[in-house]
Design a protein around this nucleic acid. Sequence first.
RNA 1: GCCGACGUGGCGGAAUGGUAGACGCUGCGGACUUAAAAUCCGCUGAGCCUCGCUCGUACGGGUUCGAGUCCCGUCGUCGGUACCA
Length: 852
Amino acid sequence: MSERRKQFPFDEFEPKWQARWETEKTFSVPNPGDPGFDASKPKFFVLDMFPYPSGAGLHVGHPEGYTATDIIARYRRMRGDNVLHPMGWDAFGLPAEEHARKTGEHPRLNTENNVNNFRRQLKRLGFAYDWDREVNTTDPGYVRWTQWIFLQLYNSYFDEATQKARPISELEAQDLGRDEIDAKRLAYVAEAPVNWCPDLGTVLANEEVEEWRAKGHAVERRPLKQWMLRITAYAQRLIDELDGLDWPEGIKLLQKNWIGRSEGALVDFAIGGEKVTVFTTRPDTLFGATYMVLAPEHPLVDRITTPEQKDAVEAYRRACAAKSDLERTDLAKGKTGVFTGGTATNPVNGEEIPVWIADYVMMSYGTGAIMAVPAHDERDYEFATQFGIPVIEVVQAPEGSTDTCFTGDGIAVNSGFLDGLPTPEVKARIIAWLEEKGLGTKTVNYKLRDWLFSRQRYWGEPFPIVWKDGRHEAIPESELPLLAPELEDYKPSGSPEPILSKAAAWVDLGNGVARETNTMPQWAGSCWYYLRYCDARNADRFMGKEAEAYWLAKNGKPGGVDLYVGGTEHAVLHLLYARFWHKVLFDLGHVSTPEPFQKLVNQGLILGEDGQKMSKSRGNVVNPDDVVAEYGADSLRLYEMFMGPLEQVKPWSMKGVEGVYRFLARVWRLVMETNQEGEWVLNAKLADTEPDKGTDKVVHATIKKVGEDIESMSFNTAISQMMVSTNELTKLERVPVSSVALLLQVLNPFAPHLTEELNATLAAAFPSLDAGELANRLWPVYDPAKLIEDEIEIVLQVNGKVRDKLFVANGAPNEEVETLALASEKVRSFTEGLTVRKVIVVPGRLVNVVAN
RNA sequence: GCCGACGUGGCGGAAUGGUAGACGCUGCGGACUUAAAAUCCGCUGAGCCUCGCUCGUACGGGUUCGAGUCCCGUCGUCGGUACCA
């Protein structure tokens, strides 16, 4: 784009103010005990989801949430709060490691470059971060405490009775063996099927598999020994404790569905001498179970398969093992399965039913075995009809139901002692019956799985664990942080052995002691970064007790982070993992609130100008640096807030950026004009005069609305109100400086550079302004008296349609307004020949004459 | 399939059950200028018999003096999730 004259010299004053904020540490906030700390001020902790510093640099999506929180932070600061508004880097991750593999450089170098670029870009946008609290998840001083928190998990177990984590030392004091103790730890080792990617030389998280497959890498399932975190122990609390949180209901629901609680029963079926337990949410349909299905991986399959069926079963299991999860869950292909030759005894009626294996039953959910009731389960129905298995109706559908397979509640039939009873009661009775006979129990099952916590990567936190005689053991806290050694090269080993196993000297500690070579996933660092901000330089604890007590204080609310803003992509995993860690720390007495994030707001995605998701391949990516260069940081900030509601998905528009740029130029020209030489000088229209009534009204209405809109995060309407008042002030022949100064105050959180610059100019030219809330940069207080109108416009309707308008004195009695309305010529012409049935007067608003 | 969010001008969007379209963009006309840019002013939902009237917030019903807003149903878009027994 061709260089053209800037409408105001943002390129001069923006860097100037940024430099000043940096050298004066304007936005650094003291902790309890620090000089200048004022305990009487309320705290406000406003948090952004910290970025992964990718090589691509800042995306326009980042400043959306960051500007929103910055406005809130600056506003709360003007209101007199101690505001904690920090930023940091989620800097471990695969891209930096991939870069290291290609270049042979240590991933730290690439990470540092990217962090420096991100920091530069963010500083250019003028965010009021306390940079003294910057954290980086890859810093040894940070890794140390991530590993320390891992050890808290490792050294704890979940006490079912109190539903809380307790120190493992309590078990050691009892007479438990080491195996029993290890089996109870919140961090434990288990053999688990993982997504192994040979090219990358690492295991991938489920949600990463598709991404790398799309790039042409093979990913296969392999059972490997893995570290797991016992998040399932917290399933119920993770559901229940959502209740008090000020989060979008949709996100709460998403988490609840992810955890997936379902109530049902475990029922024992006998197969020969063996026992198979199934999980069902419909124990009331037990009489309708006509077959049983085991997951192909079920351990009992080998023992119950008859010799005649052995070949078919083996072939089927091999076919399943080769399938990816995606292929296996492809619904469109219909059901497959093989008869094992064995039968199971239905405990309720002694019927022998065939036992099948089929991949529509997952080993990872419930018990990996189901009783199939084709009459009342659509999947079982599809399978049974395909394989010619009988269907027995045991729940009578209500009158009028046309479902071929009825899955709702009804009345029990063909169910012996349960016939005639409604479904909920049948459930209760059958469970009581099973429990009495010792054949089953009521139970609650969750979809949530324990968290697979180990990766075979280099660029992550090593586990603070050593192995001795086949057993794991924590290293002493004094040895933290445990950092990964430098490697000759960062290429994968090609085997599922973690990369760190290549560092033989680091791994082998002699005397048969070897280091754990797995590393932690990227989630580890992001699980607790918000805590570290509270006391980022503490060398003795993950955070100091005083800092914890102050910054997470409840202050009459549930406490924790007061406002957390970020994208929906973290609705489940990050937010669930962080809640889990926080609860463990809470149980162990390290933090004083059970939940980390009191209020959560999701910003909506910003699309390209074409309405498509921004991507390099579509060529619709907007680079914030370019926008800042052409229109300034204030314009970018303001535009992103003016686009529409924060939570909404919305397309970018360069024309829209120009619109807010023009608005800021108008504000600039309220204060400045160019002289003959083309230099910016004070606008001669500015006068130290009393504003007239109309001017006062619009300015005070703006103070009120902008304040309310910031509180409700309706930034777009706040900006439009400031546009209205700017347009009003621009029209004046003599512009009262006090009115301009008030406008600049409320605009300050949105466009801090421009307003600071103009404020400084005004204060120098009009010393009278240099007093009170304006001089102290406090949020102005509006005067309600100035909002009151002498005359109010009343809309006159006939049968709900607007026919006329009229001005009445503010506070005129309803009778008077009604008389005036009925006297209106327009109203009379529209009621001519009709009878007035009713007159509705809404004080200060309208009159509706009902006539027919 | 299930769960969730949302359907308002040419576009982004605004409207405690009370004047639909604030504010911004686009477009058109005008002022300034030798000219252009920038700036400033006016108009900009549709239709008509253009004083003014009628229609209009995805569609069909309902509640109400009054519905974009509340209720029921339908269609559509987006997001999440998926054989979870």
